[in-house]
């Protein structure tokens, strides 16, 4: 509150708090930043929908109806349905072991969990090809036994899991560190079993953070391109996921079809962003303090 001026003459210069920038600078910064963001981020988003709807909505929808497109959509959903729950389970287990116990080598292990962030998706794909590809010992046996991993669905799942590996753990670890161990210890003292403690004490505390991590994990899992491109073999109707399908259609100059598929994934991205923002607004206190990826 500024004290009411008595009979002092009004200063010629309008009052400006010492801890902010001049008005002209503030306004030009806002305008510059908004302009940049529109060019860099919003324009590509608008382009996707504009190109998809160039020949009308009916054409866009029709291009998604053919067999290969349907199979790509089903495959992408399947991959996410397998890899996201597995990574969520890993995230919960890792966060429990890391935040509820003190053990040697913890910091090093956290670094290892973060490793996939600094490995190129293409290199990740290459690693799996070397491990399970037909020219490796395991791969040759897998192919002979009729269960190939590379150029098949299991390889896509593994590559997707590698890329999205840290997401849930990264979100849960800071939240569970902050919450400490006292509540779980109290539950155990009162006679609850370990599982009951986890389900009725820990899980309600971390549910929003878990959902947040799963959301990010899912968005990346459905959209992963580089790693999947290397391990999938890009067999139309069999191992072509939605992003792979986009590439194939685009390279065949089937622009409307490519952008329609892209628009579907862009819609998914928008839904993800909406849910993510809703979580941030309503449950900010239960999410990791630093909203890092």
């Amino acid at each position: 509150m500024t004290p009411a001026p008595l009979s002092v003459s009004v200063p010629a210069r309008p009052f400006r708090p010492a801890t902010t920038e001049p008005v002209w600078l503030r306004r030009s910064l806002i305008v510059a930043v908004l302009a940049m963001l529109s060019v860099l981020v919003l324009a590509p988003l608008v382009t996707v929908f504009a190109h998809a709807l160039r020949d009308g909505l009916a054409m866009a929808v029709a291009s998604l109806g053919n067999r290969d497109a349907q199979s790509a959509i089903r495959l992408t959903l399947t991959i996410a349905a397998i890899s996201v729950p597995l990574n969520a389970a890993f995230g919960i287990a890792a966060a429990w072991a890391i935040t509820k116990f003190d053990w040697r080598g913890k910091a090093f292990l956290i670094t290892l969990i973060d490793l996939p962030f600094s490995v190129s998706p293409v290199v990740a794909g290459l690693c799996f090809v070397l491990l399970f590809g037909a020219n490796s010992a395991i791969g040759a046996w897998l192919v002979a036994s009729g269960h190939p991993i590379i150029f098949a669905v299991p390889g896509i799942v593994l590559a997707t899991m590698f890329i999205t590996f840290p997401f849930v753990a990264r979100e849960l670890i800071p939240v569970m560190t902050e919450q400490g161990r006292a509540e779980e210890e109290a539950a155990l003292t009162l006679g609850a079993s370990g599982w009951r403690t986890f389900l009725t004490v820990t899980l309600p505390n971390i549910r929003w953070a878990l959902l947040y991590g799963v959301l990010l994990c899912n968005a990346r899992a459905m959209g992963e391109f580089g790693a999947v491109a290397v391990v999938s073999g890009k067999i139309r109707g069999q191992t072509a996921t939605m992003p792979i399908m986009i590439e194939m259609l685009y390279n065949e100059y089937l622009s409307v079809a490519a952008f329609s598929m892209a628009a579907l994934l862009a819609l998914l991205a928008l839904v993800t962003l909406t849910l993510k923002s809703a979580l941030e607004w309503r449950h900010a206190d239960q999410l990791a303090a630093a909203r890092r990826h």
Partner: peptide
Amino acid sequence: DAAVDLPFALPTAVAGIALTAL
């Protein structure tokens, strides 16, 4: 604030063809 995360949520192949078209 929400739009800042769009590059993160938008699959890279989608961003790739959109930027190329632009």
